[in-house]
Amino acid sequence: MKFVKIYSQRSGQPGINSKEYGQFSLSIPVVRKEQYKISSILSYADNLIVANEKKGQQLKGLKKLLMEKIFSQAWRFKGFSDPWEQRKLNEIAVINPSESLPSRFNYIDLDAVNHGKITKRKELSLAEAPSRAQRVAHLKDVFFQNVRPYQKNNVIYSNDSIPTVFSSGYTQIRTKIDSEFMISALEDDLFVHSVLLHSTGTSYPAISSKQLGDLELSIPEKEEAERIGGLFNMVDSLIVANEKKLDQLKQLKKYLMQNMFV
């Protein structure tokens, strides 16, 4: 790959031709048995990677199917039959609760959340904080990304050991119902479609916190909401665990490649 990169840095159209490929020297084990063993190990690693990629797609497909069935109420937990109630978001949650910023905190900007997880944190003092650092997080608060909501880069704040402040690019939702149910309801395709209808902008559609709070959700009784939230939490945990395993397998293959072809 280093060889390809060097040859591809020419002016004009970058690339490498067949003749140049043919001039590259490969290190080949003399004994065919060693060649076979190396290829077998790497092929086995590739098969594990493909299998886990397939499992990941199946888990995501399962979650999508569950979302469709549960939020259309086509499928209910046994013992629950009462109709769901239509409620505005601002009736079942406190939107953007006001609170003074701590002297130091972890700052979460719009690019810091990915697939329901906080992946980046920036420690700041109050003096260093940008003006958009406004949402002081509490345990179980839901943060909804106002910009490009179809990305579903939303998160439940689950670690209150260090003071954390989110950007005003998120709507902070201090829910009165189960947080896991709430974030699942906010990411239901029908609700996201409603959000987009009330958003402004084409390339970067965005909704204000006030408009979001005025939108309606279908809400079941407390116990059913908790059961639904627990189900989606379990599926999400399986998805995250599979993605972690997939990353480990890719790192394993990279390590094998680096050490076998030295």
Rank of each mutant, 00 (worst) to 15 (best):
L256Q: 10
V142Q: 08
P205W: 09
A74C: 09
Q134A: 09
F71M: 07
L126C: 04
L197A: 11
S208C: 05
Q258V: 01
S131F: 06
I207M: 09
T164Y: 04
G213I: 03
R32T: 08
F181W: 12
L190N: 11
A225Q: 12
Q57R: 14
R87E: 14
Q258I: 00
N146R: 14
Q86C: 05
K54M: 08
W75E: 15
V155L: 07
V165I: 02
S158H: 07
V147C: 11
Y7L: 15
D236R: 15
I70P: 06
S203W: 06
V4W: 08
E187S: 14
L42H: 11
Q86S: 13
S103W: 00
S81A: 08
Q23N: 14
N96Q: 10
P149H: 08
S25N: 13
Q13G: 00
M67K: 07
L26R: 13
P14D: 03
Q13D: 00
D247A: 15
V30N: 11
Y150E: 10
P29L: 06
D178V: 05
L190R: 13
T119N: 12
I183P: 04
N242K: 09
Q134D: 00
G22R: 11
E91T: 01
K55V: 04
L126M: 08
H115K: 15
I6S: 13
N52I: 00
A206F: 11
Q211I: 01
A45Q: 13
D82A: 13
Y44M: 11
K122C: 00
I95C: 04
Q248G: 09
N146P: 01
K63V: 00
D160Q: 13
D188P: 01
L48R: 03
V155H: 07
D160N: 15
D188H: 12
E216W: 05
V147A: 13
A45S: 15
I41N: 02
I219C: 09
S100Q: 04
K120D: 09
R148H: 02
I239S: 06
Y170W: 08
F3A: 14
Y44S: 15
Q145G: 14
M260E: 10
K54I: 07
I156W: 06
S199W: 06
F143T: 02
I70A: 07
K120E: 12
F181V: 02
I118Y: 09
D214F: 10
S81E: 13
N159K: 09
K222I: 10
Q9I: 00
K19H: 11
L246C: 06
M1K: 11
L59S: 05
I38A: 02
I16R: 03
I70L: 13
D236V: 02
Y170F: 15
I118G: 05
S168H: 05
Y21E: 01
E216M: 10
Y157T: 01
K122F: 03
A51T: 06
K88I: 00
G201D: 09
N242C: 10
I49T: 07
I6V: 14
S72H: 05
Q13R: 14
